[in-house]
Computed example of a mutant assay.
Amino acid sequence: MAEKKLTVLQMLPALEGGGVERGTLEVAEALAGRGHRSLVISAGGRMVQQLEAEGSEHFCWPVDRKTPWTLRLIWPLRRFLKEQGVDILHFRSRVPGWVAYLAWRGMDRHSRPRLISTVHGLHSVSAYSAVMTKGERVIAVSKTVQRYILENYPSTPPERINLVYRGVDPAAFPYGYKPADEWLTNWYKEFPQLRGKKVLPLAGRITRLKGHHDFIDLIQMLIEDGMPVHGLIVGGKDPRRLAYAEELQEKISSLGLQGDITFTGNRSDIRDVYAVSDLVLSLSTKPESFGRSVLEALSMGVPVVGYDHGGVGEILKALFVEGLTPLSDIDQLKNRVKKLLNSRCCVEKNKVFLHASMIEKTLAIYAECSR
């Protein structure tokens, strides 16, 4: 029997960049590639061009605004769902989730789309966040998220929760990847201070929860122990938290580490950055729902040391248990990093958290719901 062609609408706040956005684009590309109609509603952003180039249709709606005004979109969305013949309505965040859920709930139950939600984050537990569990199917991006739902929203039937790990495409982050000579030449022109050093990046947006203070303390301790290391803070400054970035720079200056820690800003070449790194750090002080940057580095065979909690701990337990270290214990963190830098550790190939598996499981849920 031929596969039923579906019209799938995904909703998220915006398409500027991040894990939720990348997951949306990956599913959208797979849908379009298989002949389904892929629609996305968001407030727009720099990833819209890629989304449309890969075969999806984008509709720019202000579903990123956390104000009661946004609920005015319920009635236009209800009309949109009918006019476009949407079979699957899939929301991935709370504000668009409330618009989607309330629009869907007011439709005829025999003709409305099937409703799916994906819980990408460990949101504060509240009636506002509870909308993420309102899908007829609720996708959890990790076992950490699955436990979070069951513990904090016990009214959610366990059989409605589907575990679908986020995944990395081995072609995008190849095991053993080496950068091109031209890239290396340009890299060392830009950052000559890295020559002859053990390079340790901490990747992610510069926000307080990412553990930058622990990272700075780690670099200081390693240097005091005679280790030839250089720390990289890889990621853009959050416009709403510029004072935090200044706080980090002041701390680095006060410790005399200006020549030992470099802010690289956002990098579109993160794969190459990982490839020239000796060890990647993940030091979020709050548990993360998944930990894509950890998985990307491990998929390339680059060792990672991360705090043993949340999705990061989950990934390390599966792929590189040697990289686990207790939360916020700086001495143990230092000892773990030193041990790995002084040994020839080997990271197993990623066979668990794969992009293809994530796509197949998500599309299978769509197909099952639409029967």
Score class of each variant (00 low, 15 high):
Lys5Gly: 11
Gln10Pro: 08
Met11Ile: 06
Gly18Cys: 13
Gly19Asn: 08
Glu21Met: 10
Arg22Ser: 03
Ala28Pro: 08
Ala30Gln: 04
His36Cys: 02
Arg37His: 06
Val40Glu: 05
Ser42Cys: 07
Arg46Pro: 00
Gln50Gly: 10
Ala53Glu: 15
Ser56Asp: 01
Val63Met: 12
Pro68Gln: 08
Trp69Lys: 09
Arg79Asn: 11
Phe80Gln: 08
Leu81Gln: 14
Glu83Gly: 07
Ser93Val: 04
Arg94Trp: 01
Arg94Thr: 05
Arg94Cys: 03
Pro96Val: 04
Trp98Ala: 02
Ala100His: 03
Arg105Trp: 06
Arg105Met: 06
Arg112Gly: 14
Ile116Lys: 05
His123Pro: 02
His123Cys: 10
His123Asn: 13
Ala130Asp: 14
Val131Phe: 01
Lys134Phe: 09
Glu136Gln: 15
Glu136His: 14
Ser142Pro: 03
Tyr153Val: 03
Tyr153Gly: 00
Thr156Gly: 01
Arg160Gly: 01
Asn162Met: 09
Leu163Ile: 00
Leu163Asn: 02
Tyr177Ser: 08
Leu184Phe: 06
Thr185Lys: 15
Thr185Tyr: 10
Asn186Lys: 14
Tyr188Pro: 01
Lys189Leu: 14
Glu190Val: 05
Pro192Ser: 07
Gln193Glu: 13
Gln193Pro: 00
Arg195Val: 15
Gly196Lys: 12
Gly196Met: 10
Leu202Pro: 12
Gly204Lys: 05
Gly204Ile: 06
Thr207Ser: 14
Lys210Tyr: 02
Ile219Leu: 11
Glu224Asn: 14
Met227Val: 15
Gly231Arg: 02
Pro239Gln: 08
Pro239Tyr: 10
Ala245Tyr: 04
Leu248Asp: 11
Gln249Phe: 09
Glu250Pro: 03
Ser254Val: 12
Gln258Leu: 13
Phe263Gln: 09
Phe263Val: 11
Thr264Arg: 02
Thr264Phe: 05
Arg267Asn: 09
Ser268Asp: 15
Ala275Lys: 00
Ser277Cys: 12
Leu281Val: 09
Pro287Tyr: 04
Ser289Cys: 07
Ser289Met: 00
Phe290Pro: 02
Gly291Cys: 05
Ala297Asn: 07
Ala297His: 09
Val302Trp: 08
Val304Leu: 12
Gly313Pro: 04
Leu316Gln: 00
Phe320Lys: 01
Leu324Ser: 08
Ser328Leu: 14
Gln332Asn: 12
Lys338His: 03
Ser343Val: 07
Cys345Trp: 07
Val347Trp: 13
Lys351His: 14
Ala356Asp: 01
Ala356Val: 01
Met358Pro: 04
Met358Phe: 13
Met358Gly: 00
Thr362Ile: 05
Ala367Cys: 10
Arg371Asn: 13
